[in-house]
Design a protein around this nucleic acid. Sequence first.
DNA 1: CAAGATTGAGTCGTCAATCTTC
DNA 2: GAAGATTGACGACTCAATCTTG
Lengths: 162, 162
Amino acid sequence: MPDEDTAALPIYAMPGHVIRRLQQVAVSLFVEEMEGAGIELTAVQFAALVAIDAYPLIDQSTLGKIIAYDRTTIGGVIDRLEDRGLVRRVVTRENKRIRQLIIEPSGQELLGRSRPVAERVQERLLDPLTGPERDAFMTLSGKILDAYNDLSRAPLRPMNRR
Amino acid sequence: MPDEDTAALPIYAMPGHVIRRLQQVAVSLFVEEMEGAGIELTAVQFAALVAIDAYPLIDQSTLGKIIAYDRTTIGGVIDRLEDRGLVRRVVTRENKRIRQLIIEPSGQELLGRSRPVAERVQERLLDPLTGPERDAFMTLSGKILDAYNDLSRAPLRPMNRR
DNA sequence: CAAGATTGAGTCGTCAATCTTC
DNA sequence: GAAGATTGACGACTCAATCTTG
């Protein structure tokens, strides 16, 4: 039973491990806050709704690039949102390959209730840090992401660029 | 107005999003380096091997607590490691509920080859930062984790309450 | 052929239910 | 009943293969 001699494992000092744990905490807070608000939305689903609301008629591939998710993952996420009537796929006459996405009124309504909850999650996440520390954390994180922006599995890219 | 492309979506400034992207990058680097070394190991599998090697005869629950994974997740991970003969489950006469874990010689060998690769991943992850910045990043991350240590998604509490 | 999307397979991560054992 | 583990279910994530359309 190793309790305090956890130092024997260098895992705790490894950035990869720390980042994964941060992600665990972030997800926990998101689930906790959403459940507390009686809202059934995962983090991906929320991000998708935000993006579809901001860019009506966006296609799935572009959506994936914006919120940094794999195209295949997006497909499954949209499936579930569509099943619940929160979102709709549109196939135009011009290009039948493309699935354009539209947020439904019920989706709008749910998104409206979700925004303040998501806002609270972000606040709670950095709550253990002081104001300057929060800025530092975001700046340092951004520096890492900038360096590896094109390496990510689903590279994050602004819409208007190739 | 900087970043006219991304300014429309506040997602990029959200800590939760940034942390998830960091996790994406970390996983990408891990996969890339391991593939480059011709080693078939996921990050969880590597962490499990490290812990089992450090604590022979550790049980699955304790392993989960050490490397911060859900008990059920650990079960599946050990399944795959056991299928490959890298690890072995042992059931003692004293307490037949407990699955104690032992690393096999082939697991030792693979672990030995994997350590320097994992080391390189950690270095590359923080490579975009200067020395002091790396310390700051780890310190700030640790501060967040300390505050939410008991909130982790794998609560490790029996949750039999009620 | 290239682009956009879907399907299938495999791993990860969590929860709920169940089983065995103490 | 409680502890340790397994199974089943579901969402998420990725890749490879496939299908359709341009």
